Amino acid sequence: MATWQQFAESAPDLAAPVRARLTATKHHVLATLRKDGTPRVSGTEVDFTPEGHLHLGSMADAQKGKDLKRDPRFALHANPGDGSMDGGDAKLSGRATPLPTEGPDDAFDLDLHEVVLTTVENDQLVIRLWTPENGLREIRRK
């Protein structure tokens, strides 16, 4: 697992467009796991901290927060915008760690296991994939 900062230092050319996708719009889609192991998708917002972490918030007693406290695995799909694929399609996965909060709401630090950005370049599908173990790879498909 890696913090956002560790990912950004390891793959800055991938981190910049992924961050752009995450900051281009406010709302994204989070996938968590229910008690029975089936997936749940929820709307969510993320924030980048000055210390180089990626955080996610959840209202008190929201199901996504309960899911993450029980099973920290998540997948996050950045809002794709207007559907033009401008800037690419960004997806992240990893584990969420609860953070202490002053109020009733929940907050989580996101540790990254995988970051993917899919774009279309010259009629090719370009998939840029990063993991802490293998670094950055690129796959091109016609």
Score class of each variant (00 low, 15 high):
residue 33 L to T: 10
residue 109 D to S: 05
residue 49 T to K: 04
residue 41 V to E: 04
residue 36 D to N: 13
residue 74 F to M: 02
residue 30 L to Y: 00
residue 28 H to G: 00
residue 127 I to Q: 03
residue 3 T to M: 05
residue 35 K to H: 15
residue 59 M to W: 12
residue 20 A to I: 10
residue 23 T to W: 01
residue 32 T to S: 12
residue 99 L to Q: 10
residue 89 D to C: 03
residue 129 L to H: 09
residue 8 A to S: 10
residue 121 E to D: 06
residue 5 Q to W: 09
residue 78 A to P: 03
residue 110 L to P: 03
residue 105 D to C: 02
residue 80 P to E: 15
residue 16 A to I: 08
residue 8 A to I: 09
residue 27 H to D: 15
residue 4 W to N: 04
residue 14 L to P: 06
residue 33 L to E: 10
residue 13 D to L: 15
residue 113 H to K: 10
residue 17 P to H: 10
residue 129 L to Y: 00
residue 97 T to M: 10
residue 128 R to I: 07
residue 42 S to M: 01
residue 34 R to N: 15
residue 93 S to N: 12
residue 63 Q to L: 15
residue 97 T to L: 14
residue 34 R to F: 14
residue 23 T to I: 02
residue 22 L to H: 05
residue 84 S to K: 15
residue 73 R to F: 03
residue 21 R to Q: 02
residue 113 H to L: 13
residue 9 E to V: 08
residue 35 K to R: 13
residue 26 K to Y: 11
residue 14 L to K: 09
residue 124 Q to P: 04
residue 27 H to W: 15
residue 127 I to W: 02
residue 61 D to L: 14
residue 140 R to W: 03
residue 85 M to C: 03
residue 63 Q to Y: 12
residue 72 P to C: 07
residue 109 D to Y: 00
residue 49 T to G: 01
residue 95 R to K: 04
residue 116 V to A: 02
residue 139 I to R: 13
residue 65 G to K: 11
residue 132 P to W: 09
residue 122 N to S: 06
residue 32 T to H: 06
residue 47 D to S: 08
residue 33 L to P: 04
residue 66 K to W: 15
residue 98 P to A: 14
residue 59 M to A: 13
residue 130 W to F: 04
residue 82 D to P: 07
residue 12 P to M: 13
residue 41 V to N: 08
residue 125 L to P: 01
residue 38 T to G: 14
residue 131 T to Y: 13
residue 87 G to Y: 09
residue 56 L to H: 01
residue 142 K to E: 05
